[in-house]
Computed example of a mutant assay.
Amino acid sequence: METDKVRRGPQVKMFGDEKCQICKRKADGYHYNVLSCQGCKGFFRRTVLSKLEYVCKNGLDKCDLAVVDHPRQRCQKCRLRRCEEAGMRDQYVRRKKNRTRTQRILENMRRPTVIVNPLVKEQHKLMAEVLNCFDKITDIESQKQVLAPLYLAIQKSSSAAQQEKLKMESFFQLIVNLIVSFAKNLSPFKVFSFDDQVKILSSSLIEIFVLQSITKYDPLTKCVTTFDGSVINQARLSGLSTQEFGKSVFETFARIKKTASSTHLLALLTALTLFSPDRNYSKELDAKVDNVQQHYIDLLRQFIARNHPLEKKLLPRLLMLLTYLRQFSDHSMIQHKATMKPFEHIAPMMIGHILKTPNVPFPLSTTVIGRDMPESSYN
């Protein structure tokens, strides 16, 4: 008696406006039990047949697959996860049909950059941690919650001549608070003593101050947008200091923005800057800082291998930015002493005050002038 053959049901009628359940592009039918496009069907089949493993391009496992210019830019780890969540199963993929030809095609299509060594658990933690902390110090809405009422009070109680100066001082105090909170929430920073934490933050403050500003810098208009919609350009900054200083700052903005174009790269650069050795530390502290920085360099190297595989010189360029930032900081302290006075005299006292205050909520208060920081310091 002949065994009954399994029959397929009728082809589902398509109306032409169906969307792929994985990437939201136009679907052309049901593949492996899921309404999907040919691209996602082929991706799932290649993954199953070649037993590929991926790592998330952002390290967060929640990438948006629809917001890309080209399918090859999609995060492969998140795309595979969406395939499985939608209902695709590896047992639906036939492995023996035209096996020789399929394997030959797969080998020809395989790119050497598809698979990289996955991040280990500790690296996943470092990446998520540094991104979360960097988002907080660059979030305009959080700055608005603190500065908006303060700016309003300044406008009511101050003369027009003093308003600009008071606003910039308030902004400076807030950013110092945020930079300290950035460091305090990084696990490697917590292992240092209080005195070492003050030294590390005081030494790297100017450079981190610049890096957090890059997220608001527009290279087309050459302006930094503030929380209230106003802009700081070279002319406005020069009016508060000198023309040479304003030019130097915005040249630095442009150079960094050109190389570190994404938030992820800026966040990792900020961590590398915080934990930079060779800052006149003691030999013991210098070795501890250098050891921590190496972990972030390894993380940056793997992030670039996964997300910027064709930019072979990106890592050395980013590391060169650390040297450039250091030179900018040192030059500014020497050539523009009046402008950099808050960084030299006020900032270390503020940093110590904030570090001594446990469990400071975010957004942080800007009223940190106390007995340790006499108000005359601002004159």
Rank of each mutant, 00 (worst) to 15 (best):
residue 124 H to Q: 15
residue 45 R to M: 12
residue 309 P to I: 08
residue 361 P to A: 08
residue 31 H to A: 12
residue 101 R to C: 12
residue 293 Q to H: 05
residue 330 D to T: 10
residue 62 K to H: 09
residue 77 K to C: 11
residue 363 P to S: 14
residue 49 L to A: 03
residue 95 R to G: 10
residue 61 D to E: 08
residue 151 Y to W: 02
residue 180 V to T: 06
residue 316 P to H: 02
residue 136 K to H: 03
residue 362 F to A: 07
residue 328 F to P: 01
residue 20 C to F: 12
residue 168 M to N: 09
residue 176 V to E: 05
residue 198 V to A: 05
residue 260 A to R: 04
residue 35 L to N: 02
residue 270 T to A: 13
residue 207 E to A: 06
residue 241 S to Q: 00
residue 250 F to T: 01
residue 138 T to I: 05
residue 369 I to Y: 08
residue 114 V to D: 14
residue 172 F to P: 01
residue 14 M to I: 15
residue 90 D to G: 00
residue 160 A to H: 07
residue 355 L to H: 00
residue 133 C to P: 01
residue 12 V to Y: 00
residue 66 A to F: 10
residue 281 Y to G: 02
residue 241 S to N: 04
residue 379 N to E: 13
residue 269 L to G: 01
residue 166 L to P: 04
residue 309 P to H: 06
residue 175 I to L: 14
residue 349 M to T: 05
residue 265 L to V: 11
residue 150 L to N: 01
residue 26 K to S: 14
residue 184 K to W: 08
residue 71 P to Q: 03
residue 266 L to H: 01
residue 346 I to T: 10
residue 131 L to K: 13
residue 355 L to C: 05
residue 28 D to S: 15
residue 90 D to T: 09
residue 242 T to M: 04
residue 181 S to P: 04
residue 128 A to Q: 13
residue 371 R to P: 01
residue 356 K to A: 14
residue 8 R to H: 11
residue 85 E to S: 15
residue 321 L to M: 14
residue 278 D to Q: 04
residue 184 K to D: 12
residue 300 L to Q: 07
residue 276 S to I: 00
residue 218 D to E: 09
residue 350 M to I: 15
residue 255 R to P: 00
residue 114 V to W: 13
residue 159 S to G: 14
residue 210 V to R: 02
residue 31 H to C: 11
residue 358 P to D: 06
residue 3 T to P: 07
residue 32 Y to Q: 06
residue 204 S to W: 03
residue 25 R to H: 15
residue 372 D to I: 05
residue 364 L to C: 15
residue 271 A to I: 04
residue 1 M to Y: 07
residue 139 D to N: 11
residue 229 G to I: 00
residue 267 A to I: 06
residue 287 A to M: 05
residue 195 D to R: 09
residue 50 S to H: 08
residue 146 V to D: 03
residue 376 S to C: 08
residue 271 A to R: 00
residue 209 F to L: 02
residue 121 K to I: 14
residue 27 A to K: 02
residue 133 C to Y: 04
residue 174 L to Q: 09
residue 148 A to D: 07
residue 191 V to D: 10
residue 66 A to W: 07
residue 143 Q to F: 11
residue 55 V to P: 01
residue 105 I to W: 12
residue 315 L to F: 13
residue 45 R to V: 08
residue 226 T to N: 09
residue 288 K to H: 04
residue 5 K to L: 12
residue 272 L to F: 02
residue 236 R to Y: 09
residue 129 E to F: 05
residue 230 S to F: 10
residue 278 D to R: 03
residue 352 G to Q: 06
residue 27 A to F: 06
residue 67 V to Y: 10
residue 301 R to W: 11
residue 24 K to C: 14
residue 59 G to Q: 15
residue 140 I to K: 05
residue 271 A to P: 03
residue 131 L to N: 08
residue 274 L to I: 04
residue 13 K to E: 11
residue 316 P to T: 05
residue 38 Q to L: 12
residue 214 I to E: 04
residue 96 K to M: 11
residue 188 P to R: 03
residue 42 G to A: 12
residue 39 G to R: 05
residue 45 R to H: 07
residue 80 L to K: 07
residue 165 K to E: 06
